[in-house]
Each structure stands twice: as structure tokens, then as C-alpha cells.
Nucleic acid binder design. Structure first.
Lengths: 243, 243
DNA sequence: CGAGCCGTTGAGGGGATTCAAGCTCAGTGG
DNA sequence: CCACTGAGCTTGAATCCCCTCAACGGCTCG
């Protein structure tokens, strides 16, 4: 539930973050990709590398944020509790995403950000972003791009995942999950409870739909949290559903 | 005080804005509120003031945007068409909002932006924002704040308006509409079709719920598109609904 | 090995949709 | 002046999809 170990990369058995920023695996997707490589030596010092297990929070809604996070690996969900006490998952993000941007505006975090899969994030202090921002205004441009991407993704979530039949919603969700998976065909398969909170259905309904999709060969379970997804069958099923 | 603007979008005048920017009625809410008053004389020249009727588009999804808009009066909705051909309204904004920010990133508009009520907007060319941004970096800060506000509002829309019973969704929608109304008790009452596209229900269901709320005294119609809303009864009804 | 969690499946009921018919109201033209 | 028309709102009846309640099996873990 709480943030697990704040393991620097050094303790995790790899080289210290110090010299890894400039050769980061998600370097080209990350926030600082717009900066010249040289700047990153400076950055590495104050950036912490964290690992989280599924269910761990990156941060909690309402907390005063002092850092943004770059998602290096895994999937993170944004969730909040509605006024009638239901949990709703309002968006998912994958590798390369920047999360907790509101902290740059000195606002409290708007949602809970929770690891869906094993996750690695880089914790970037707000002050560091401010500093780089003063030096190189192009960083602001990049930040705005991130915000816009988040906004568009939120719009699509609302439009595609919150209406239509149970079957269609789940199919659309699978489509989303495929986009978030680095691997093309193996996806993270959320628990039925998580799925139900994403698409606004009862747990049992989600289970029924998934079971049927499995029988139809759209999906093959690979353990509890992974599945092999047959994209063409998915598209077929969606095409039928969409008329 | 208010200027007459030309009706058709294409030939909307630029001239009259000249002396109004610095004494704009939404000056303190608008994007340029962060700039010193003096700067605005410059701004007024290229800013056009437009009037739109309900149903008119501010801009269309996919269009290459060259301008952002400040909403001076009225309510604007963002809508898109889902892959199965349904229209979905994903967010509403009211007075003082900045819309079409994606144009600042030279991205096409993400949704259709449509006037819900009679609307007045100021069309601000991208180049003008760029220019001010170079002069005064605080403008970027303000833009980011706007993006974050939009994102949070989108999150709440998804969380509160897309699940639960029909009655609860409509009640929550009324709550939103009250927030968007300058007047505390008289709100814009969307058509049943619009409501159904906002909360993801059938038109008939929306109609049934609204009729019942009217019988219960939560709502009193004032013509076709306006209603008097009894806030305390609304809160009561929501409290019951939320357990 | 029992407890607890999660997933699955069945049965039944309820809320929303669908289909359909009137209704009001504004605009139109005879 | 008023019938005619069409669009939007309302309401009824029947249907269906999803929710709720419930039972059961597999799995992990103490």
C-alpha cells in the first residue's frame, strides 16, 4: 500500500543512477529527451530510481507533490474514489510517461497513482525541472506536450471505455492494454476487480466477458496477470460490435 | 460595454477588441491575466471577438489549429464520435476557460468544440501567444495551469458522470451545470439528447429522470433551455443516492 | 489443512433500453 | 386564421442486458 523500498539503482545491482541518465533505456521517450546529453550529468545526481510492486502507490491524491516521475517500466493507473464511495480508474499510462506533473505547479496530486505491474520510475525533484526550465525553455514546450497527451488520452478513455455493451467496453480495454504493452501480443491482464473499475461494470460481468473471449480464442491466459492477445480476432470482434 | 461582433465566423472583426482587452469582463480569469496591463494594447490588435449560437462550432476535430480561444460567455462542450458511431460529450467548460490549447503545440484539435448556449469567445492567434511567451515566461506557467485544470476536470467527468444509476448521473450533471452557471440558481438545461450523450444513457431515460426531478421539485423549467435549480434539494437527493 | 482471496458460473430480479405512440410548440404556407 | 408539419419531450409496455446474490473451485499462505 505504501511506497515500498526507495531503492537507488546502485542497490538494485546496477550502475548508480549517476551515469545512467544519459544512457537510459527510455531516454528518447523521457521528459529530458529534449535536453542536450551533457545536461544530464547534472540531473543524475538528484534523480532517484524506484521500484514498485503491483498495488504500491507512486503517490497519493491530495499529497503535496515535490516531484514528478518518469515511468521507465510497467503500467500505472490513476484512480480516485467517487462521492458514492466507488473506486474508479480514470486512465492508464505506460513506459515513457511523465506522471505527477501537477507538482510542478505546486498543486497537490489529483489522483492516486498506483502500480499495476512491477514498475520502475525515476523521481525528479520539482526544483530540478524548474532549474532546467530556466536554462532551456524548450523543456516547457515538452511539458505542455505531455499535458496535452494526457488530456487526449483522458478524452479517449471517457469516450470509448465508459459506454456501450459490456463486451465492447472490455474489447476496447484490451485494445488499450495492447498499446501499453512493449511486447505486441503479450499484455498485462488486470484482475477482474480492476477491469470493473476501469470500465464501470460489475466484477462478475467482467469475468463473464473475459471468459467468453477466452473461449472464443481472442485471449489466452498466461498465468494470472498476463495473457496472449490475438489482435486480428480482437479487431474482428470489435468490427462486429461496432456494426 | 459589450461590442457588437460580426455574425459569420469568417469575417469576424478584429478592430473593436482594441480597447476592450485591458478592461475585459473576464480579464481576471483569462489567459493574459498574468501579463501586465500594458502588454494588452498590443494584444488587442490581433484578437478577434466572436459570437456563436448554440450548435455552432468553435473549431472542429482534426482541423489544424492556429488559434486558442478564451471563453468570455456561455458554455462550450467537447465532443467526439466513438468508433461505433456514437457521439460522446467528454467535458464542459464555462466562462474564463481557455480552449483549443493543442494549437499552441501545432497539433490538430482533439475534439469538436461546440457552443451549448449563446457564446462569446476571443480568438487568440498562436503566434501572439508565442510572442508573449518569449517576453514573459510566466505565461507558460499559466498555460500549464490551464492544462492541469482541464485534465482534472476530465478526470472528474469520467469518475462522477459515467457510472452509477441514471438518477445519480443526472443529479451529478446538474451539479456540474450549476458550477458552470454564473447565476447561482438558474442553469442551462441541455436537451435530452445532449444529456444522454454526456452521461451515457438513452434519451428516454434522461427524459424520465428529468421529469421525475421536476415532479420532486429539484428542478423547475424556465423555458426550454433554462431551469431553476434548488440546490439544497439537489444535495439532499444526492446524499440519499450516495448512501 | 483451513482461511481467505480471486475467478467462474448460475439463477433471479431490476434498471435501462428499445419500440411505439401521443404530446407540445414553433415555423410554414395555404 | 388555422391546418400541416417536424422536431423534441414525455410516457407506456415489453424486452434485454447487467447487477446482485449465491455457491463452488483453484490457489496461496499462514
Amino acid at each position: 500500500m505504501l511506497m515500498r523500498a526507495t531503492l537507488p539503482l546502485a542497490q538494485a545491482g546496477t550502475a548508480p543512477a549517476h551515469d545512467t541518465c544519459s544512457m537510459c533505456q527510455v531516454r528518447d521517450k523521457a521528459l529530458f529527451s529534449v535536453l542536450p546529453t551533457g545536461s544530464l550529468d547534472l540531473a543524475s545526481v538528484s534523480i532517484a530510481h524506484l521500484r514498485l510492486q503491483p498495488g504500491d502507490s507512486v503517490y497519493r491524491q491530495g499529497t503535496d507533490g515535490t516531484a514528478v516521475f518518469t515511468l521507465r517500466r510497467g503500467i500505472v493507473r490513476f484512480e480516485r474514489v467517487t462521492s458514492d464511495g466507488q473506486r474508479r480508474i480514470v486512465r492508464l499510462v505506460g513506459e515513457g510517461a511523465l506522471i505527477g506533473q501537477e507538482s510542478l505547479l505546486q498543486r497537490p496530486y489529483a489522483d492516486d497513482a498506483v502500480a499495476c505491474t512491477p514498475v520502475e520510475v525515476c523521481r525528479i525533484p520539482r526544483t530540478l525541472v524548474d532549474e532546467f526550465g530556466r536554462q532551456d525553455p524548450v523543456l516547457h514546450q515538452e511539458l505542455m506536450r505531455r499535458w496535452q497527451a494526457a488530456l487526449e488520452s483522458a478524452g479517449e478513455w471517457t469516450a470509448e471505455l465508459t459506454c456501450g455493451t459490456a463486451r465492447r467496453r472490455v474489447l476496447k480495454l484490451l485494445q488499450q492494454l495492447r498499446r501499453l504493452s512493449p511486447d505486441g501480443s503479450t499484455i498485462w491482464l488486470p484482475s477482474r476487480l480492476e477491469m470493473s473499475d476501469m470500465v464501470g461494470l460489475a466484477v462478475e460481468t467482467a469475468s463473464r466477458v473475459v471468459s467468453r473471449l477466452r473461449r472464443e480464442g481472442v485471449l489466452e491466459s498466461r498465468g494470472l496477470v498476463q495473457a496472449r492477445l490475438h489482435s486480428h480476432k480482437l479487431q474482428e470482434a470489435l468490427a462486429v460490435e461496432d456494426d
